[in-house]
Amino acid sequence: MPNSPSKNLQRVLEAASDVVLGKPHPIRMALACLVARGHLLIEDMPGVGKTTLAHALARLLGLQFARVQFTSDMLPADLLGTTIFERDSGRFRFHPGPVFAQVLLADEINRATPKAQSALLEAMEERQVTLDGETRALPQPFFVIATQNPAHQIGTFPLPESQLDRFMMRIELGYPARDAERALLAGMDRRQLIAQLAPVMDPTELEAAQAAAERIHAAPALFDYVLALIEHTRGAPEFEVGLSPRGGLALMAAARAWALLAGRDHVLPEDVQAVAPGVIPHRLLPAGELRGRSAPDLTAALIAAVPVP
């Protein structure tokens, strides 16, 4: 019998922590997002290890990896692929774009024009691409990690709120702690490390883990809690826009994946609270007191305002 999904995922986490140093929490969030079949948006400075994280995860899960640097002159075809006439065979042949990878790292997604952005976002939502009247399914599993650079917004096209909703989570990596950075400086080149990584799971096992996450039990008391959170975002004056039903579904799915990572067969309020900083803030439009507060602050305020029933 193969190892249980949660054991496998534990090993993925451990192995990834050896590569991306000092970031156990973001790694866990990213993995939970993946297990919950969601896409991930990382908002952070260049060079903090976004690519390393994405690449390492792909490698450990035995998935193909592709990376696209988004630029302002990028066209949808650069992403999706294009049909080219081949003289040898005298036929048109489709050359798939980088989107046909299992893990796609879309770097600096806000540099591209809305046209290219929406090509990616559509692919993310539908998990298929329609080109020249032909619909092509994307590989299974399909996982997009997009990054945004928050500091330099000049000449960019920030994603509108409606499109942010397509990402299950938005997280930040942040600088590594001193010890982790020392280990990083002293250690091997990350790219070599990744190349040496052996896959811990195969796509079938990942599929099994995703299915297992969906079966994690959520009790009525837990639904009461999630509903209370959702209602609070809709009723309270601190939020101009509350959580959408899609946001609620994402919250539940992520909490289930988090519970699976913890090796539990049921969801606790703590699971919801743990994934909330990734799932909730980018879907809300804070007003009043909370305007301009950071995502963790926002989540903490929300959680503190809603009692666990």
Partner: peptide, 16 residues
């Protein structure tokens, strides 16, 4: 859940 607790201590308690 330590990260959450640290945050709430400073920011999330409804301010006076």
């Amino acid at each position: 859940m330590k990260w959450l607790r640290l945050r709430t201590a400073s920011a999330a308690v409804p301010s006076e």
